[in-house]
Structure formats: structure tokens, C-alpha cells
């Protein structure tokens, strides 16, 4: 996690290049959608765009909390398993005859609890974030599998969340509008409240932030609870969207979520995860999946592209960051 403090040998980039460096992800999104459309015009048909927005919305909800955990210089690799556990909790309660409200609230409570556990261990006990969340994630995965005794749970009725998912506002799915508003609010919190300043100050220098009077321990606890809650919310939505509880929601959310947050952090605020960057990256990944499917790419090619995107993104950000005279050694 620490960086060696000798100065970089790479030359500083020109200002025009810097602007590209700041917005490259948005450019990449436009270029990618454009290229896919050239090859397969179905790409920008209303139905396909709605599908892209739907899948992007779900990932966006799942990683909003993770985004700030990463912005504070920590990491949470348990979010996918938290979503799986919340998913199975809600599904088993629904299958047992409970209503959607108690089932959803119970699932959110489970997510919040795991988040609080992560937060106490990382924020208060100051253990390594990676090791802690690998371990809590493993426990969640086992618990999720144990709820369904190793298999999935089928749900008869997708309920009110299923109805909300199928609703549209004109051609746009309602959930995408909701996520856009959510991210707008999150952006406002991040840019205009002391909350956002505290998060980035914690990432820069936790000790100094603490000395300056920022309750970093409590802040980190809150961030992990948020991460758990948003992951659990995505898990509950997945119950309705899949009409079942799946103990292994799919490893694709794991790499997608981390790629979105970390690559998104390479845009606008270089080297600092932020909500606009995360949202752009989520859209880019969803466009890649959709365009790749239209072109008939197999799954693994997309995994390779995502991995390459992640490494290129971080290399670009470190290079740009270094030219400003600071190395953002977040990891």
C-alpha cells in the first residue's frame, strides 16, 4: 500500500492531454458505444438501451457505498457476498411466507450489520481492510449458501419491487431515473458537505485528519455501513429481478464493481474514486457487456478487456497524478 517516495522519471503531460486525461472515461464510453453501433445498429435501439440502463442501475446501487469506502483509502471486497447474503435472506423469508417489507428490511439489516462489523474492525480496531473484508466476505458467502443449503430459492411472485422494476418513464426504465437521482444526491453530498471533504482528507492522511479533529474511526464505520446497506439493497432488488435467491450471485459483479469504482476514480478527481466517475465506469462496463453480446464475444473476452481496462486506468491515473507532484498510492 505504501509507495516509494523517489520522484517519477516520466515527463509531465501537456495541458490539452490533461483535459483528455480528466475525461477519458466519458470519451471511451462514447467511442465504445459509437463503435458497437457501427458494427451492430441494434446497439442504440430503445429496447437495448433500456436493458443496458437496467443492468447498469443494479451495479450502480451495489457499488455506491464501496465507492466512498475506496475514496477514503480503504477497500471492501465483501460487497458481492453481502449482496448474496441479503439476497438469500430476503428470498428465504419470502419463501417462508413473509411480506416484502419485513423481508427487505431484514435483508438490509443483515447488510448493515456486516458493514458495521467491517467498520468496527477497520475503523476502530484498525485492522487491514483487505484481510478483514476478505474474511467477512467469506463468512457471508458461507452463510448465504447455508440459508439455501447450497442451492437457490425460487420465489413465486416478484412483488412490488418487481412491478417497480418493470415500470418505465417514457422509454427510460424507472429504476434508471431513480439511480440517476440517487447519484445526483450522492454527488452533492460528496462535493458540498463536509462529509466529502472528510472522506478525501482521510484518504490523503488518516493521522493528520484525526489530528485535525475529523473522527476518522466513526467516519470509516459509517462508510462501511453504507457499503453494506447499498450492497444489501442491490441484493434485495436482485430477488425480484431474478425471481429467486441465488447463493452465488455471480462473480461478475465482483470484478465489475471493483473495476467501476477504481477505474471511475481515474476520472475527474485523478486517483480518487468519485460518484460521477463510478457511474460512467458502470455504464461503460454495461455497454461493453451488451455490445460484446451483440458481437458474439464469449464471456472470457470481456473479462480480459475489463482487466486490461483496470490496469490501463490505474496506470494513466498514477502518471497524471505524478505530474501534479503527488503520487496517489491508494491501493
Amino acid at each position: 500500500m505504501s509507495m516509494i517516495t523517489s520522484s517519477g522519471r516520466l515527463p509531465a503531460p501537456a495541458p490539452a492531454l490533461k483535459l483528455v486525461g480528466r475525461w477519458w472515461l466519458l470519451l471511451l464510453l462514447i467511442v465504445a458505444v459509437g463503435l458497437f453501433t457501427l458494427e451492430r445498429p441494434q446497439m442504440i435501439e430503445a429496447g437495448n438501451l433500456a436493458t443496458i440502463l437496467r443492468s447498469a442501475s443494479l451495479t450502480a446501487i451495489m457499488v455506491l457505498g464501496l465507492n466512498w469506502v475506496a475514496a477514503a483509502g480503504k477497500i471492501d471486497v465483501s460487497f458481492m457476498q453481502v449482496a448474496a447474503l441479503a439476497n438469500m435472506t430476503a428470498a428465504s423469508l419470502l419463501a417462508g411466507g413473509a411480506g416484502w417489507l419485513p423481508a427487505g428490511l431484514a435483508a438490509l439489516a443483515v447488510g448493515g450489520l456486516v458493514g458495521a462489523l467491517n467498520g468496527v474492525l477497520v475503523g476502530t480496531a484498525r485492522l487491514s481492510p483487505l484481510i478483514t473484508t476478505i474474511a467477512t466476505g467469506g463468512i457471508c458467502a458461507s452463510a448465504a449458501a447455508a440459508i439455501g443449503r447450497g442451492t437457490s430459492i425460487r420465489i413465486e411472485d416478484a412483488g412490488p419491487i418487481g412491478e417497480l422494476l418493470s415500470m418505465t418513464l417514457g422509454p427510460v426504465p424507472l429504476i434508471a431515473v431513480g439511480v440517476a437521482l440517487l447519484y445526483l444526491a450522492a454527488w452533492w453530498c460528496q462535493e458540498h458537505l463536509t462529509f466529502g471533504r472528510y472522506v478525501y482528507a482521510t484518504a490523503q492522511n488518516e493521522e493528520a485528519a484525526l489530528e485535525a479533529g475529523i473522527p476518522t474511526g466513526r467516519l470509516i464505520l459509517i462508510l462501511y455501513v453504507l457499503s453494506g446497506l447499498f450492497a444489501a439493497a442491490a441484493g434485495v432488488i436482485l430477488v425480484a429481478s431474478l425471481s429467486s435467491g441465488q447463493p452465488m450471485i455471480g462473480a461478475s459483479y465482483f470484478i465489475d464493481g471493483l473495476t467501476a469504482v477504481l477505474v471511475g476514480g481515474m476520472m475527474i478527481r485523478l486517483g480518487q474514486p468519485n460518484v460521477i466517475g463510478t457511474l460512467t465506469a458502470v455504464l461503460l462496463l454495461a455497454a461493453l457487456v451488451s455490445g460484446g453480446a451483440l458481437l458474439g464475444w464469449p464471456d472470457y473476452q470481456r473479462e480480459i478487456i475489463k482487466g486490461a481496462l483496470l490496469i490501463c486506468g490505474v496506470a494513466l491515473a498514477v502518471w497524471m497524478g505524478r505530474s501534479r507532484g503527488q503520487a496517489n498510492g491508494r491501493g
Binding site: 500500500m1 509507495m3 490496469i311 490505474v314 498514477v318
Partner: peptide, 27 residues
């Protein structure tokens, strides 16, 4: 040497390697 963050780089390269593993038989 390039001083990139370890977690990000190894998640990325692990994902690439796991993807390449499918090249032989498609899984």
C-alpha cells in the same frame, strides 16, 4: 518499478489470466 497500486493491478491481471484460461476449451 512503475509504482502502481498493488491491489488494483493484481485484481486486473488476475482477471486477465482467468479470462485467458478459457481460451483453451471455453471452460
Amino acid at each position: 518499478y512503475l509504482r502502481l497500486p498493488d491491489i488494483v493491478v493484481t485484481i486486473g491481471s488476475g482477471s486477465i489470466a482467468a479470462g485467458l484460461a478459457f481460451l483453451y476449451t471455453g471452460g
